[in-house]
Amino acid sequence: MKARLLAVSLLAIMLAFLCPSAHAQTQRVFDAEGLLTAAQQADLEAKLDDISARHDFDLVVATVTSMNGKEQRVFAADYYEAKGFGADGAILAVSATTRDWGFAATGFGLTAFTDSGQEVLYDSFLSDLSDDRFYDAFVAFADACDKFLTAAEDGDPITGDSSTSGGGYNPGGYETDSPYTGYQPSYPGYQPNYPYGGGDSMSDDEKATITAGGYTVGGGVAAVVAAAVPLSWRRKLRSVRPNTTAREYVRSGSMRLDVQADDFIRRSVIATPIPKMDDDNRHHDSFMGGSSFGGGGFGGGSFSSSSGGSFTGGGGKF
């Protein structure tokens, strides 16, 4: 029985890797603030649907009146989860009322939207946002995500410094006032520069660390299975065991509770400060500070949603 359970668990793990993320929702535009016309909403919905379907990736845009005091990217992640979207996806949440924006991506989004790449992404829509051209901002966001996803699927996630990586990526004439030059809206293609055809966003050390970790975990799983199954067979050879209880001999209906008291005595509350992502903020603040949009920014790193889901993303004021 234990061996069977083990087999089912392994199968479930394998299926989890193999199954594509499901598109649990069809509505992808949630305009609580009414920033879009009906036509714009329909067009944006169609665009997001098209991109989501092509990349098997849930792309969502939301406008909200408030982010409830949460960090913008956490609010965006929570919103994404609350709407029940799939394991792979990204969301841009905007509040014109409070001038907040938050971006969060999960699943394959963790690969597609690298820390430095997110700076490129944000720059694609923040100027429109700051000018209150919300529809344009959302379209720009969708188009940029499309390119990010395509690049990542080709094994070369877009990074902010792609132009200097020497990986054959030609940033070309991206001409804005932004302080970076690594992003070209019309993605020109990619020439693989290492055997697996992957991107250059991961250093050799990181790859080696992940590989070593993978083999260690795999070796551990193999060792546990190899020991647990024969041990369960060995236990089958033993059928002589002491019986230390008398459950079979409890007289039916004989149990009677005369006293049943549950008295509250005291309570204690422990508060643990939440670590702030100062390093990431400094990095991103520096970028944001140099841009023309002003305002503080968050992000460039992985974080957890309120329910514990793994996300990457950022946010700030516009």
């Binding site: 008398a246 001999y249 409890v250 007289r251 004989s254 149990m255 009677r256 509770l257 005369d258 006293v259 049943q260 008291a261 549950d262 008295d263 509250f264 005595i265 005291r266 309570r267 204690s268 509350v269 422990i270």
Partner: peptide
């Protein structure tokens, strides 16, 4: 953490 003092008293037959 809330702490409770719980009492159960009664009979059972075998």
């Amino acid at each position: 953490t809330q702490y409770f003092h719980v009492v159960r008293e009664g009979q059972i037959g075998f």
